[in-house]
Amino acid sequence: MTFVRTIQQTVAATIVVGVVACDSAPTPGLARGEEVFDTCAPCHGTDGAGNYELLAPAIAGLPAWYITSQLEKYQNGQRGSSPFDTVGIRMKSMSLALDVDGDLESVAEYVSGLPGIDAPASLHDGDANAGQQAYALCAACHGANGEGNEALNAPPLMGQYDWYLMRQLKKFKTGSRGSATGDIGGAIMRPNAMTMDDATMANVVAYIEAMQ
């Protein structure tokens, strides 16, 4: 009988511990961010350096406010909802995996702490000198050195791949990014991208790349 009682008590204790463990929400912070980053790493890499094969941009070292704002946009459908934004749709689905309170901020904190990368140039058809002039339009929000501006929700452009910048400019122009209702930042960016033809985009991207 004693043996049976011991087994019963052990099972009951295990269930109680299990329920308590399942019930307790993880503590937000860097450690949790690192844990949550396992969801991002398959595409963005364990160092957040991105992966061209998957068209995943570099995210290492991006400011936490920008990462949080973009994840929120993905989650509420302001980004990644256009049927023509194939890569954005993929990211939107992944953002939905961050469904625990505080996870968004935790992973943003972790990613922003990763060392930024030197993104090598891969596009060579732009003229950086010509791009400098066109960049004046971008500098108003993104800064003269592409350092970004939190007050304007404009991300830094440094440390980002040229192929990614090019794709985003084209997305803004066609409306597969920035045209969703409520995407204020996108609504500001779109008209600017619409003023550029492909050659101007290539020049601007070449200039940003040359600044790195």
């Binding site: 049927p83 194939t86 749709i89 993929r90 939107k92 689905s93 992944m94």
Partner: peptide, 11 residues
Amino acid sequence: VIGQQWAWIFQ
């Protein structure tokens, strides 16, 4: 009906 990772696109 267009399947892609990870959404359904309908035309």
